[in-house]
């Protein structure tokens, strides 16, 4: 059975592309969520997940806030959360890692290598 991944991004296009990439090139089962709130609901209703891939900049509840809610007992502590961000730079990367993210993937990502990149992070 393939691993389950919760994909959180407010952009339809990116959700579509990432889903195709991760399901067809990688071997993930992707559950997409269009907002932080939807993601928290999905964990309750559709869980458990093996990993979370989440955009940083989202309306209402952004990535870091959603992560905080997840870590407040919604999501088991061992489940890795990886951020997708269009803001590059070491400072931003460090900030996200300090919030408890397992890794950061920069936008734009190459859908052909995204699953590999994700796996690399998960393998530590």
């Amino acid at each position: 059975m393939s691993q389950r991944l919760l994909l959180v991004d407010d952009e339809d296009a990116i959700r579509t592309i990432a889903t195709i990439s991760l399901e067809r090139i990688g071997e993930w089962t992707v559950v997409p969520a269009s907002s932080g709130r939807a993601a928290l609901e999905a964990i309750q209703d559709d869980g458990p997940f093996d990993a979370v891939l989440m955009d940083v900049m989202m309306p209402e509840l952004d990535g870091p806030s959603t992560l905080q809610h997840m870590r407040d007992g919604v999501l088991p502590a061992h489940v890795p959360v990886i951020f997708l961000t269009a803001k590059i730079g070491q400072a931003e990367r460090d900030r996200l890692l300090s919030l408890g993210a397992s890794g950061v993937i920069a936008k734009p990502f190459d859908p052909m290598t995204l699953p590999e990149e994700l796996q690399h992070i998960l393998n530590g």
Partner: peptide, 26 residues
């Protein structure tokens, strides 16, 4: 500059992603 950087990247991510999937023969 920061916003432009971000705002340009978001659609570019979709464009690049779509093209990448096409190019990759998915």
């Amino acid at each position: 500059i920061s916003v432009v950087g971000h705002e340009l990247r978001t659609p570019l991510t979709s464009i690049r992603g779509s093209l990448g999937l096409l190019e990759g023969g998915v």
